[in-house]
Amino acid sequence: MQIFVKTLTGKTITLEVEPSDTIENVKAKIQDKEGIPPDQQRLIFAGKQLEDGRTLSDYNIQKDSTLHLVLR
């Protein structure tokens, strides 16, 4: 499925993911596309910070959802 990741600069990254993918996995995909190390990434969805060990389906993230990427 496709999800979107919006950065603070207003750029939107499109990712191909599975509901069973972990947040860690998603961060690795963002690193592949953007070169941002996962340890600098914070992903936010519906006002919640997403934890590495959980999956997209744990957070009820569905296709065409938009996550927000904050760098630390």
Score class of each variant (00 low, 15 high):
48 K>V: 15
47 G>W: 03
15 L>A: 12
45 F>Y: 09
24 E>N: 01
42 R>M: 12
72 R>S: 14
62 Q>I: 13
12 T>S: 07
54 R>H: 09
41 Q>R: 08
52 D>I: 10
71 L>D: 14
46 A>W: 03
49 Q>L: 05
58 D>S: 15
24 E>W: 11
59 Y>D: 02
33 K>S: 14
53 G>F: 14
60 N>I: 04
61 I>V: 11
39 D>F: 08
45 F>N: 08
4 F>V: 04
13 I>G: 02
18 E>W: 11
72 R>W: 12
36 I>T: 09
2 Q>V: 11
52 D>T: 05
32 D>G: 06
63 K>P: 09
48 K>T: 13
2 Q>E: 11
47 G>A: 02
62 Q>R: 08
66 T>Y: 08
44 I>D: 12
42 R>N: 13
26 V>G: 00
60 N>R: 06
51 E>D: 10
43 L>K: 00
43 L>H: 01
5 V>Q: 00
13 I>P: 00
70 V>S: 15
21 D>H: 15
45 F>M: 07
35 G>M: 07
31 Q>D: 09
54 R>V: 11
64 D>W: 12
23 I>M: 12
2 Q>P: 13
34 E>L: 06
42 R>H: 14
19 P>T: 13
53 G>D: 02
59 Y>V: 05
43 L>A: 01
39 D>A: 10
18 E>H: 12
56 L>W: 02
36 I>N: 07
39 D>W: 04
18 E>Q: 03
38 P>F: 14
71 L>I: 09
63 K>V: 15
4 F>D: 10
17 V>M: 10
22 T>D: 04
44 I>P: 00
11 K>D: 13
44 I>R: 04
9 T>W: 03
70 V>E: 15
68 H>L: 08
21 D>R: 03
48 K>M: 15
18 E>I: 12
30 I>E: 00
18 E>Y: 10
60 N>F: 02
15 L>E: 01
54 R>F: 08
47 G>T: 11
5 V>A: 03
28 A>I: 02
39 D>K: 10
7 T>D: 15
27 K>E: 01
12 T>Y: 12
4 F>Q: 05
67 L>T: 04
38 P>W: 14
14 T>Q: 04
36 I>F: 14
58 D>I: 03
50 L>H: 00
71 L>E: 08
32 D>P: 02
11 K>Y: 03
46 A>Y: 04
5 V>K: 00
7 T>F: 12
20 S>T: 07
72 R>T: 10
4 F>N: 08
59 Y>L: 07
54 R>Q: 15
26 V>Y: 00
10 G>N: 05
39 D>M: 11
39 D>N: 04
40 Q>V: 08
9 T>L: 04
13 I>S: 05
36 I>S: 12
54 R>Y: 11
31 Q>V: 07
52 D>F: 04
5 V>F: 10
38 P>V: 10
61 I>P: 01
63 K>Q: 09
61 I>D: 00
44 I>V: 13
67 L>S: 01
6 K>S: 13
62 Q>W: 10
70 V>H: 13
28 A>D: 15
27 K>S: 11
55 T>N: 06
69 L>S: 02
23 I>Q: 04
65 S>L: 06
65 S>Y: 11
9 T>V: 05
39 D>S: 07
33 K>D: 07
27 K>V: 11
20 S>H: 15
18 E>F: 05
67 L>V: 04
3 I>P: 00
50 L>R: 00
10 G>M: 09
58 D>V: 07
39 D>R: 07
70 V>L: 09
36 I>K: 12
22 T>V: 09
5 V>L: 09
17 V>R: 01
34 E>W: 06
15 L>Y: 06
55 T>M: 12
35 G>K: 05
3 I>G: 00
67 L>M: 05
45 F>K: 05
67 L>R: 01
47 G>E: 15
53 G>T: 10
43 L>Y: 03
31 Q>P: 07
63 K>N: 11
52 D>N: 14
46 A>M: 11
21 D>I: 09
2 Q>W: 08
63 K>L: 12
25 N>K: 14
37 P>E: 11
11 K>F: 05
58 D>P: 01
47 G>F: 03
67 L>Y: 01
14 T>K: 06
7 T>I: 03
27 K>R: 09
34 E>N: 03
47 G>K: 04
24 E>H: 06
16 E>K: 06
59 Y>Q: 12
8 L>V: 09
18 E>R: 05
46 A>T: 09
65 S>R: 07
50 L>Q: 01
40 Q>H: 12
4 F>Y: 07
12 T>A: 13
34 E>D: 04
27 K>L: 15
63 K>S: 08
44 I>H: 14
25 N>W: 13
49 Q>M: 07
37 P>H: 05
44 I>S: 10
22 T>G: 08
12 T>N: 09
11 K>I: 06
49 Q>R: 03
8 L>F: 04
48 K>N: 04
25 N>E: 14
2 Q>N: 09
7 T>A: 09
49 Q>P: 10
28 A>M: 08
36 I>M: 09
3 I>R: 00
55 T>Y: 09
8 L>H: 15
17 V>I: 07
72 R>I: 13
48 K>L: 15
51 E>Y: 03
53 G>R: 02
56 L>I: 04
63 K>R: 06
33 K>P: 07
8 L>Q: 13
13 I>E: 03
14 T>N: 14
29 K>L: 11
55 T>K: 13
5 V>S: 01
43 L>N: 00
27 K>Y: 13
7 T>L: 05
45 F>Q: 10
70 V>D: 13
4 F>T: 05
1 M>E: 09
63 K>H: 09
34 E>T: 05
11 K>Q: 13
58 D>E: 14
50 L>P: 01
2 Q>D: 07
16 E>H: 12
46 A>F: 08
47 G>L: 04
63 K>D: 15
63 K>I: 08
41 Q>M: 12
1 M>V: 06
31 Q>S: 07
6 K>M: 15
62 Q>M: 11
